[in-house]
């Protein structure tokens, strides 16, 4: 294993019992990460970009339907299938275990997206557009992605960097910060005292598509009947 190993290992826990499917995390992510706002035609094609999305699964027969919400974002896999297939190292593992995407390296083969079992990678089919006046509220810490590059959830790496540089406590990605039900918890998996580490040890904790051996750093706390 090459490169230096950092003290942090960022992870997330999402309590599906608490998630109401309100999509506040989706809106917060859009604002924080300068996600383009698709027009209706492009959205209908399936080109809307949501680094975090809330998948809905229905159980039972009408009228006894139970809806399961599951916020899906990049799982920041330890053994990410997207990484080895990139010919230009645009996606790779950074020293803190984050699966990062370097926009300037990306040539747009889209192989990583095909190889992502969680379908959380998004492509810039055109140069991004924002309806007036949304272009005025861009986050200066996050770059705007040009046409032809891949992008995905970064665990709000700009906030992580800022926290590390300025020593701010209470570090949270935008989705976690905005969750009204407090279903999401972010923290350092290397710190056994952190809430996320404890939740990851919880008996309800599972990893999504665990059987693929991708070793995600996002833990879902399953719903109890």
């Amino acid at each position: 294993m090459g490169g230096k190993v950092s003290e942090h290992r960022w992870g997330m826990a999402i309590d599906l019992d608490r998630c109401t499917g309100c999509q506040a995390c989706v809106a917060a992510c859009h604002a924080e990460n300068n996600l383009p706002v698709s027009n209706p035609e492009q959205a209908a094609l399936g080109r809307a970009v949501h680094w975090i999305r809330v998948d809905r699964y229905y159980e039972g027969e009408f009228p006894n339907i139970r809806v399961k919400h599951r916020p899906v974002l990049c799982q920041q896999c330890d053994e990410a299938p997207c990484e080895p297939v990139c010919p230009v190292y645009a996606t790779y593992k950074n020293p803190e275990g984050l699966n990062v995407q370097v926009y300037n390296r990306c040539v747009g083969t889209r192989y990583c997206a095909n190889n992502c079992p969680y379908s959380v990678r998004f492509f810039n089919w055109f140069d991004p557009e924002w309806p007036e006046p949304l272009q005025l509220q861009h986050n200066p810490d996050v770059s705007i992605r040009e046409s032809g590059v891949m992008e995905k959830c970064t665990f709000c790496i700009q906030r992580i960097k800022r926290a590390e540089e300025e020593g701010a406590n209470n570090l949270q990605p935008a989705c976690v910060q905005s969750c009204p039900a407090e279903a999401m918890v972010f923290g350092d998996l290397n710190d056994p005292e952190s809430k996320v580490s404890q939740l990851a040890e919880n008996s309800r904790a599972t990893q999504f598509l665990e059987e693929l051996g991708t070793k995600p750093k996002v833990f879902y706390l399953e719903r109890v009947k």
């Binding site: 492009q42 094609l45 399936g46 080109r47 747009g108 889209r110 997206a113 095909n114 379908s119 990678r121 998004f122 492509f123 810039n124 089919w125 055109f126 140069d127 046409s147 032809g148």
Partner: peptide, 15 residues
Amino acid sequence: DRGIGVANIRRPVFW
């Protein structure tokens, strides 16, 4: 000129 989006590929059919 316009971007690869003029081809009708989209998520999840990237190829």
